[in-house]
C-alpha cells in the first residue's frame, strides 16, 4: 500500500510560487487499479512526481510517503535510485511518445534497468527485453530499433514493457493515452489493465478522462486544485458523489454520453 500524508508540493520559478499539492492524503492499494482524475492543472502529474520523489529544481516537498511500511521521504537520493524507483514503483509517462532517449535502441533502454537493478549480463538483459516486448504485443526483434522508428501506440507499448521489466509492485501511468487515437487508447488501457492484473500489480492510472477511469478503476481519487476532494470505490462515487466537484465532473460526462 502506498500511503501519502499531508503532501505539499511547491514550485518556484523566479519569484513566483505555485502550490501544486496542498495537503494531499491518499492511499493506493496493491493489486488493484486506482484512477486519479481531475481537470488540467489540478496537480495529477505533480502527485506522480512526488510519489517518485523526482522534484525539479526549486521545488519543495513536505509530508510523508510510506510504501508497504517503508518511509520513502527518509531515503537518500542514492537509496531511492537503488531500491525504490523502478524496482518498487515504475512509471509510464504522459508523453511517452517523446519519453525515450532518442539516440539509444529500445533494447538498450529496457535492458539497462535489468542490468543495473537485477544484475543481469548485457546478453541476458537483451533477451529478457525481447520477451518483455513480446508480452506487450511487439515483435521481440524490435529491441534493435530506435524510438523514432515506432508509431505512437507502439512506443507506448514499449514504455509499458520497460515499466514492467523489474517486476515492480506498483505502476504509475500518467495519462498514458493522451495524443493517441481512440482505438489505440483502448488497446493500451486494456494492455495495462491485463498485464497488471496478471502480475498482481497496483496500477495508479492518472487521467482527466472520467469515462475511462470509471470503466477500468476499482477506486477513484478526485483531485481539485491540489487537494483530494473525493475518494472511494468507483461504484459508490459514481452513485453518490461526495463532493460538488465530482458531481460536476460526472454531470459533464453524462451530458456527453447522452448526446446522440
Amino acid at each position: 500500500m502506498i500511503a501519502a500524508r499531508e503532501l505539499r508540493l511547491r514550485y518556484r520559478t523566479g519569484s513566483r510560487q505555485v502550490t501544486a499539492l496542498d495537503g494531499v492524503d491518499v492511499t493506493f492499494g496493491e493489486g488493484m487499479t486506482t484512477a486519479v482524475v481531475g481537470e488540467s492543472g489540478s496537480g495529477k502529474s505533480s502527485l506522480v512526481t512526488a510519489l517518485l520523489r523526482l522534484l525539479p529544481r526549486g521545488a519543495t516537498l513536505s509530508g510523508t510517503i510510506t510504501v508497504d511500511g517503508r518511509d520513502i521521504t527518509a531515503l537518500s537520493e542514492r537509496e531511492l535510485a537503488r531500491s525504490y524507483r523502478w524496482t518498487t514503483v515504475s512509471l509510464v509517462l504522459q508523453g511517452a511518445m517523446n519519453a525515450f532517449t532518442p539516440v539509444l535502441t529500445l533494447g538498450r533502454q529496457i535492458a539497462e534497468v535489468l542490468e543495473i537493478h537485477r544484475g543481469l549480463s548485457r546478453q541476458e538483459a537483451l533477451i529478457r527485453s525481447g520477451s518483455l516486448l513480446e508480452e506487450t504485443g511487439l515483435p521481440g526483434a524490435w529491441t534493435g530499433r530506435y524510438p523514432h522508428e515506432l508509431s505512437g501506440g507502439q512506443k507506448q507499448r514499449a514504455a509499458v514493457a520497460m515499466a514492467l521489466a523489474c517486476d515492480p509492485l506498483y505502476l504509475l501511468a500518467d495519462e498514458p493515452t493522451t495524443a493517441l487515437d481512440v482505438i489505440t487508447q483502448a488497446e493500451i488501457v486494456i494492455l495495462l489493465k491485463s498485464l497488471t492484473k496478471r502480475r498482481g500489480l497496483g496500477l495508479i492510472l492518472v487521467t482527466h478522462d472520467l469515462a475511462l477511469a470509471s470503466a477500468v478503476a476499482d477506486r477513484l481519487v478526485v483531485l481539485q486544485e491540489g487537494r483530494v476532494v473525493d475518494e472511494g470505490p468507483t461504484e459508490e462515487i459514481l452513485a453518490s458523489p461526495g463532493h460538488p466537484h465530482t458531481a460536476a465532473l460526472l454531470g459533464a460526462l453524462r451530458a456527453l454520453e447522452a448526446r446522440p
Binding site: 517518485l52 523526482l54 524507483r85 532517449t101 537493478h117
Partner: peptide, 9 residues
C-alpha cells in the same frame, strides 16, 4: 527522456 531515465533509478 531524462525525467524518465531518472525515474528508472
Amino acid at each position: 527522456p531524462l525525467f524518465l531515465a531518472r525515474a528508472k533509478g
